[in-house]
Design a protein around this nucleic acid. Structure first.
Lengths: 196, 196
DNA sequence: TCGTATCGCTACGATACCGTAGCGTTCTAT
DNA sequence: ATAGAACGCTACGGTATCGTAGCGATACGA
């Protein structure tokens, strides 16, 4: 970030110590996020658990908010767009993938982000990015299916995405019922049968 | 709550002062919840805004948690189960009703509750109650439809509920796209067309 | 080797919060 | 009218948090 500021020495590209500290802090922050949510992460606690001094943390991030934002923004792993050659199996791969990812520990952070996004502008932007990534893969697959003629072009892709991601997130966060591969596939089948 | 404790005087059924204080506190708590979420509500702030002394608040609720739980539990208004005589219009009424309720200010609290429920047992119970109420109405309508033969009994009612509530909540909290009556109705149509 | 950046440590100041104690005042029910 | 309940007010004690300052120790890079 600050690499452009002038230094007497040419410009330190990578200082091992810095990288090590940053990594330790971020790793601990992930763990704490998964365990306690956004509101439950304090700089003091991160310092304690990571072994990195609080002063050092503030040397790398200007504020608690910045640290949290940094940590959260690295959570969103962009899903690989599958290409099985068939719309239905592509969507199944995406849906099952999403369902499985929602079972992992860090998924606990998502409600935190959504909650905070209701009031915090920065986090709203982050949430929108997370959504865009997930949604992007679905849209790509759907449009490809439309080009192949597997799906009527008149159908709204956004509506299809909603009727796949929606039920999956509903199960994970709201109804808390079993969320397995079978459910994800059934949901995809539902979403596609409409077009018949 | 404490009405069973023995008093020298017969037992005060209703003291106007108590009712007034409680109401003022709860009202302010609602407002603050909608504005700042669960984590943003402090007893001091409620006291300041409501004009009720903090000591008085603690006279009626044993702790901050108890106050918040009390306030939240009064949020869940049980939806009236519609009876239009037709499954589809019943479901539409429920779906549109849910969508509209999700636009009101207090809906901001829901992500807070869901988030906290990931870690807090009490709030998990509350969330489960909120869900059960919403879901109950849907299930009732669906089962009635099955009895009338409008819907194959082989279909899983829970799956249908998921594919209606899911997309609606997805739009409200995750994609943040337009959530209107038309969308709600389209979702219901999707959920039912599968059975054809 | 040697300058310097980075580090850990301790100690702050400021703020916010929870929950309680004491005391005098006001209102209610009888 | 009067006892007792409920109230508001002020003031605590304790804890947690954010973010900063100063200082000596250490590791990196030229």
């Amino acid at each position: 970030m600050k690499k452009d500021t002038k230094r007497k020495r040419p410009a330190r590209e990578t200082d091992e110590r810095v990288e090590k500290s940053k990594k330790a802090v971020l790793t601990t922050t992930y763990e704490l996020l998964a365990k306690s949510g956004l509101g439950g992460v304090s700089v003091d606690e991160v310092s304690r658990r990571s072994g990195v001094a609080k002063t050092t943390i503030y040397r790398h991030w200007p504020s608690r908010e910045a640290l949290l934002l940094d940590a959260c923004s690295q959570l969103s792993t962009r899903p690989v767009v599958p290409d099985t050659g068939k719309l239905r199996t592509d969507l199944e791969a995406l849906a099952v993938g999403a369902a499985m990812r929602l079972q992992q520990p860090w998924s606990t952070v998502l409600p935190s982000i959504i909650d905070a996004a209701e009031r915090d502008k920065e986090l709203a932007k982050l949430q929108s990015q997370i959504h865009a990534q997930m949604r992007g893969a679905f849209i790509a697959v759907i449009e490809r299916g439309q080009e192949r003629g597997e799906l009527a072009r008149s159908l709204d892709a956004r509506e299809i995405v909603a009727s796949i991601i929606g039920p999956i997130m509903y199960r994970r966060f709201f109804s808390r019922e079993l969320l397995d591969e079978a459910f994800a596939k059934k949901i995809v089948e539902r979403a596609l049968r409409v077009s018949d």
